[in-house]
Design a protein around this nucleic acid. Sequence first.
DNA 1: CTAGGGTTAG
Length: 688
Amino acid sequence: MATRGEWRVLLQSCGSVRSLKPLHAAVLRRRPSDLPLSAAAASRYAALGRPDLALSLATSLLYPTPPPSSSSSSSDDDHDDPFPWNLLLRALSDAGEHRRALSLYRLMPHLLPDRFTFPPLLKSCARLRDVAEGAALHRHAAALGLHADAFVANSLVAMYGHCGDAGAAREVFDGMRERSVVSWTAMIGALAQSGFRSEALGMFRKMLEERGVRPNRATFLNAMPCVASGEEADELYELIVRQGLDSDLSIRNAMVGMLARCGRTQFARKVFDEISEKDLVSWTSMIEAYRQADMYADALNIFKKMKQLGIPLDAVLVLAIIRACSNSMLASIRHAKFIHGVVIRVSLHKDLMVETGLVDLYVKRGSLVDARKIFDRMKERNLVTWSTMISGYGMHGHGKDALQLFENMKALLVPDHIVFVSVLSACSHAGLVDEGKRCFNSMASEFGLAPRTEHYACMVDILGRAGKLNEAREFIEKMPIKPDSSVWGSLLGACRMYPNAEIAELAANQLFKLDPQNSGRYVLLSNVYTSLGKIEEAHRIRALMRSQGVKKTAGYTVIEVKNKVYKFLVGDERNPQSDLIYRELERLMDRIRRMGYVPNTNFALHDVEEETKEKSLYVHSEKLAVVFGLINSGPGCVIRIHKNLRVCGDCHSATKFISEVTGRDIVVRDSHRFHHFSGGVCSCGDYW
DNA sequence: CTAGGGTTAG
């Protein structure tokens, strides 16, 4: 009878699956339940391009049927040789069977792992983002004195990096005797993936100074996503060209993203156009480029061009265009339906991420009904899906529906931090104080989740909107974590509806320290003073804003009419129907004034006569867009407009009256939420 | 037999 060593040589010299199969069968007959030999066979299947066979064999090794009585002999020379196991671990890891790889490792305690054992296992931990398992392997390797091996150490850095623990990665990196380009690259990647982008670039610069280490393709691919400024982008671009790496497809794809992120959209497009053999990642990167620059029309053109060229789409690409459409000011429900149609035609509508993206798309384009229809038809839903639908209900002011959905979800899944943000923001949009409090308290008591600043901000919002300003302030004072600008922003926001100089100042002073360039906060504080009659103070804040060099973001409103998007600025006269719009506006304002509408000049500019203030309110972009919509659509048609900032209080009041006198439903999306106006009432219940 | 990489929904 041949020894195991002889069998193993036979297995490993097999050149084809066809010859491996009978040999494997012979092994099973002669040496049943010889794990190392079966492992060698499995890794050979993987090496010959059949990971599926390797996997099913590995599975049978992990969960064996009871073996016949004969057992493997333990006296063989190579019984403890980890080599075949290492091959199998790698095969499993490469096949994406990470849990199986780790299970296999746990089943081989009789074997002494060697330095080859750890890299594939650490890679599996990285893919699974299982830092606990990874740290355990780290301890095993250290106990065996293998953690100092260059390959093991590099794998550890990468594993901690993928798990988002840059500190642990750094510790391993700093402890290394020799650092190769791979070590540096892994460390840069670790910092990048933990969100420490500038530190990652700093590491990249430090590496450039290191002797004998030159960046390569992988280094650039890790460094490019960290670049945030045009100058840095140019610098990397130069280095890449100098190294002759600029013809590489992955490098060019990453360049497109890098240049676009830095605002060099034109340059990004040039790099994209010069890719001769574009792959799906190239196209996706270009669409993402445009999405980040808020250039939805260009993103859509790229998408349409792909369709013309007959390029097959995948889920990632479709998600890019879905996100571009969701976020854009220029898209409408019509666009959502067009993209939805394409998604169905290319059969990507059964993909969980795509479906969730579509739910969000319809929510953001204003159709809760379509969003819910997709949600209901989904076979599978994860936390992201539920939180998308819950926050969708919240944005549209359907607080009770959001809470109902949250209850349904809790019966199936355990909520995470973000789901709670969705639920709490839904409570704040709908003014559900008690429900919000209960929900907030349940985070820690029922789910062991420590509330983060976002959750505190929601609670302050909820209390503030209910007029409980002092309670909101006390709530902040008792926070166990440091309140950030979102928390103070909520407190200041509450003063919009319940003007209170003391509290507004308290919040604003913090905000001016934390986030001095945000123009909205100055405007808000100034408006609070105005509505309290403290005109001098209001002027002081406007002056402060000027002296800080803070520019007020220009407000604008868009509306789609007959498949074309129109944009209105305040007092805009560029529209071809301008004369008609202003005549109709005058008429409408007269009508609603007779019904009781009183212009709220707190929202107007100062230093002008009352009558001029009123006129300046009339020409707010929201009102212009609504009137334009009314003129250009038939009775019964819903008017949908989209404003880049929060809708102003006066326009909100006027729109309620307009919905009543015209009998039209008007849907306004602002930077914060949706307002559905119908019959003189708004879905936000005047909480916003 | 081993390490690092471009696009991915709340």
